[in-house]
Design a protein around this nucleic acid. Structure first.
Length: 853
RNA sequence: GGGGCGAUGGCGGAAUCGGCAUACGCGGCGGUCUUAAAAACCGCUGGUCUAACGACCAUGUGGGUUCAAGUCCCACUCGCCUCACCA
């Protein structure tokens, strides 16, 4: 083979084997060095590494390598998120066991990952479907159960009819409420399921003060949790309104002497006096009890229609509001007014209490509803200036013109009116007690015992039951006498049976298995039944970063020694699509386990950075059906891993992503080849001038300064372009006779060190070819020589009235006066002054001169 | 509909604190080498006008602040992301 030609496949294979044999990337505890835990999101073993994986992992690897060169003891592990639906769905089709398929895929992807030349420590690999891994996933479930954070509840949950399983709220996407995995619209089912009490941590999850995460992720999580402050208020229902035969009131069993109460949540207790009707969700359990015989037919029909409607239709925001009168009345507790109770589907059973007080004057939805059905509107907040005017014939509003009158709800600031002793109280647009009107009313409600301050969240508890086979079995056993109990630790893991049948019945093979579910009760030892549901795979990925610490440890999920040294994760990188899923689950998980005494600290990952997405050449999302998928294996074969790495770092801003350009990679390939030529072409020229060498050295140190800050800031594209510039400069210097000088030797050394994190193989090869000791990857990152980086003379643009008219060259150290006179001495500048005296001359040191006439 | 992010040559992008707009690369054009092509190398490459020196215009649109705006402020247009009757 021709040794002088750049042959990426040969040198990459050679160095990967050597690094492997030398355990160059093995990370072990070393108290003498500061640690750095760099983590990139682990892949699902789909069978092929995608260019998107390369895009996410390569810059993360480069930065981890850079941290290592800066003296940190770096942990950069890799593993597989191996449970999940695709493997099981494929099994139903072709009968290949998910275990077999998954491990075959992992085998293949390991090779592909190795071809990247990343510094993964493979001895720390974890695979979430390995029983030695999910043993601890189950153990964590039991810890949460023992902490009172896991509970079982019957409720209406989201069910994907295609995946045949329930989903967590986070896994239902879009306005058509489709399944995150397969895109099918979900339906509601009443099921008994396991939940984690994530809402207990809602307030803590809203605090981001300890972590350096992108604002967008913090905003998404904040919006997702959606804390709203307000009050709960009890509304008595008129005695005549209650259909007693329908059953008991839980709080007032068959007592006809006390009014039954219904609780509503409101963020606007200051508008209570304007509550002119109530609205119940069609699913509200009291609907049947309060509906009068005359209204029964209409209400039943409305309920049936609401149940028939899909969530899509029901949740369309711009849909006209519909509803039906129940015939019943409630009493507004603040003023004793008798107000009608309506049934409408714009009130959701899943938020608040499923019933609202309607204040049409100050709520848009209630206003629209009141106008449609001719209900009373009473303004209770009056803005400054022109008072709100009701339509003249309110409450009967049909067909009237609205000129000069209220045409929409007033939601701004103002003064309370029509509100008894609160008249005159100022109201602003703040939420909760920050609003003086709300604060005053809450105090009064609490004192009167008809309401209390309350906080509501949109955030739901985490539904983790999945009616599927390919997941970690929920380690619970049910006994007729003793109910649900966790499987004792010494019986973990509860392993998945291998001898199962794949039938497209929609039932989990675990449920259909003849014997697997037979167990004994941990309390009495009598026959009992295993839970046949498995856990959401997000449970597996909520703690994988902990398993990397000690993947073979069998006395616990991790070895404390490793935990104490490496945790928390210092830098976490991955896609933003997990903002309200994995990234929220893992924070909850860490906090819950902190309180159970398992983990330490408040947050698992201190710094988070998100990469963008590589689109297809057609500017569309890559997909097999579009035929625009870029295969990294092909590119590696054609160009070598170093070129692919360099191009992925160069071609777009990492946090933004961009469409793929198959021509563009030629530029990176050229850079790598030209670097090769620069270092291997031994052609000598007569030694050049000292100025040449000085200019070269200056460029080297300027580049080093830039590359260092760019690594710090995840600006990978400009790292590569700076190196390209330096290379061009080195070619010029070589032409001018720099080869053989100490400056040239230094340039070569620093250039390769800067290149090493980006293109580790060629950097190692050239490093050894210039006679340096193995390995470049254990070298120290060079320090910038600021005096060398400094320019001696600089070109200063001179502006006249804001336009650049000339450039003058001055010494870098020149005083403002010197620069000013040099600028004014310019003929060209004088021409534009047209003989006039400058009114003002602004000198910005080292930047420019601005002359104003 | 609410919220967030963004818009710079033919394309991806660069521009630290408000201080030379278009770095670096792709593509294009011209050239060297070659029988030829590829590769490699050299030069040009935002627009308009000009023989040239050079002038004028240009960072989605319209205003504003400033000696100076891609960068700050206001309004709008388009695109992407996100939530979506949340009481």
């Amino acid at each position: 083979m021709d040794e002088s030609r750049y042959n990426p496949n040969a040198i990459e294979k050679k160095w990967q084997a050597k690094w492997d044999a030398d355990k160059l990337y093995r990370s072990v505890i070393d108290e003498s060095r500061p640690k750095h835990y760099a983590l990139t999101m682990l892949p699902y073993p789909s069978g092929d590494l995608h260019i998107g994986h390369w895009y996410a992992m390569t810059p993360s690897d480069a930065r981890a390598r850079w941290m290592r060169m800066r003296g940190y003891n770096v942990l950069f592990p890799m593993g597989f998120d191996a449970f999940g639906l695709p493997a099981e769905n494929a099994a139903i089709k072709d009968g290949v066991h998910p275990m077999k398929r998954t491990y075959a895929n992992i085998e293949r992807m390991r090779l592909q990952l190795r071809s990247m030349g990343a510094m993964f420590d493979w001895e720390r690999e974890m695979v979430s479907c390995d029983p030695e891994y999910y043993r601890w996933t189950q153990w964590f479930f039991i810890q949460l159960y023992k902490s009172g954070l896991a509970y079982r509840k019957m409720s209406a949950v989201d069910w994907c009819p295609n995946c045949n399983t329930t989903l967590a709220r986070e896994q239902v996407w879009g306005d058509d409420r489709h399944c995150e995995r397969c895109g099918t619209s979900v339906i509601k089912k009443d099921l008994d399921q396991w939940f984690f009490k994530a809402t207990k941590y809602a307030d803590e999850l809203l605090r981001f003060d300890e972590i350096d995460w992108p604002q967008t992720v913090k905003t998404l999580q904040t919006k997702w949790i959606n804390r709203s402050e307000g009050a709960e208020v009890q509304f008595p229902i008129e005695l005549e309104s209650v259909n007693w035969e329908f059953g008991k009131w839980e709080t007032n069993p068959m007592s006809k002497s006390t009014n039954p109460q219904v609780t509503v949540f409101t963020t606007r207790p200051d508008t209570l006096w304007g509550a002119t009707f109530m609205v119940f969700s069609p699913e509200h359990p009291l609907v049947d009890k309060i509906t009068t015989p005359e209204q029964k037919a209409a209400v039943d029909e409305y309920k049936a229609q609401a149940a028939r409607q899909s969530d899509i239709e029901r949740e369309a925001t711009d849909k006209e509001k519909t509803g039906v009168f129940s015939g019943a009345y409630a009493i507004n507790p603040v003023n004793g007014e008798r107000i009608p109770i309506w049934i409408a589907d714009y009130v959701l059973m899943s938020y608040g209490t499923g019933a609202i007080m309607a204040v049409p004057a100050h709520d848009e939805r209630d206003f629209a509803f009141a106008r449609k059905y001719g209900l009373k509107i009473i303004p209770v907040i009056q803005p400054e200036g022109a008072p709100l005017r009701l339509p003249p014939n309110s409450p009967n509003l049909g067909g009237e013109k609205d000129g000069g009158y209220m045409t929409e709800a007033y939601v701004g600031a103002g003064v309370m009116v029509n509100s008894a002793q609160f008249n005159g109280t100022k109201v602003n647009t703040e939420k909760g007690r920050k609003n003086p009107g709300i604060g005053a009313v809450i105090d009064w409600l609490e004192q009167k015992g008809i309401g209390k301050e309350s906080v509501n969240y949109r955030y739901r508890d985490w539904l983790i039951s999945r009616q599927r086979y390919w997941g970690a079995p929920i380690p619970m056993v049910h006994c007729d006498k003793h109910g649900w109990n966790p499987v004792p630790d010494d019986q973990l893991p509860v392993e998945l049976p291998e001898d199962v049948e794949w039938k497209p019945t929609g039932e989990s093979p675990l449920k259909l298995h003849p014997t697997w579910k037979n167990a004994t009760c941990p309390v009495c030892g009598e026959p009992a039944t295993r839970e046949t549901d498995t856990m959401d795979t997000f449970m597996c990925s909520s703690w994988y970063h902990l398993r990397y610490l000690s993947p073979k440890y069998d006395k616990g999920p991790f070895d404390d020694k490793e935990y104490n040294y490496w945790m928390p994760v210092d830098t976490y990188t991955g896609g933003i699509e997990h903002a309200t899923m994995h990234l929220l689950y893992t924070r909850f998980f860490h906090k819950a386990l902190r309180d159970a005494g398992v983990t330490e600290g408040n947050e698992p990952m201190m710094q988070l950075r998100n990469q963008g997405m590589v689109l297809g050449e057609d500017n569309e999302k890559m997909s097999k059906s579009r035929g625009n998928v870029v295969a990294p294996d092909v590119l590696v074969k054609q160009y070598g891993a170093d070129t692919v790495r360099a191009y992925l770092m160069f071609f777009a801003r990492w946090d933004m992503g961009a469409p793929w350009d198959s021509q563009g990679i030629e530029g990176s390939a050229r850079w790598i080849r030209r670097t090769w030529t620069l270092f291997t072409d031994g052609e000598k020229r007569p030694l050049g001038s000292s100025e040449t060498l000085k200019v070269l050295r200056r460029k080297v140190h300027q580049t080093l300064r830039r590359v260092t800050t760019d690594f710090e800031n995840f600006q990978f594209n400009t790292i590569v372009s700076s190196l390209m510039e330096l290379m061009n400069e080195m070619y010029k210097a070589r032409e001018a006779g720099a080869v053989g000088s100490t400056e040239w030797a230094e340039a070569q050394e620093i250039y390769l060190k800067m290149m090493a994190p980006v293109a580790p193989h060629i950097a190692e090869e050239l490093w050894s070819r210039i006679g340096k000791p193995y390995s470049i990857h254990t070298q120290t990152w060079p320090a910038v020589d600021e005096s060398a980086a400094k320019e001696d003379s600089i070109e200063i643009p001179v502006q006249v009235n804001g336009k650049v008219r000339d450039r003058v060259i001055v010494a870098a150290e020149a005083s403002d006066e010197e620069v000013k006179s040099a600028a004014l001495a310019s003929e060209h500048v004088q021409k534009f002054l047209e003989g006039k005296e400058p009114r003002k001359v602004i000198v910005v040191k080292g930047k420019l001169v601005s002359v104003v006439v």
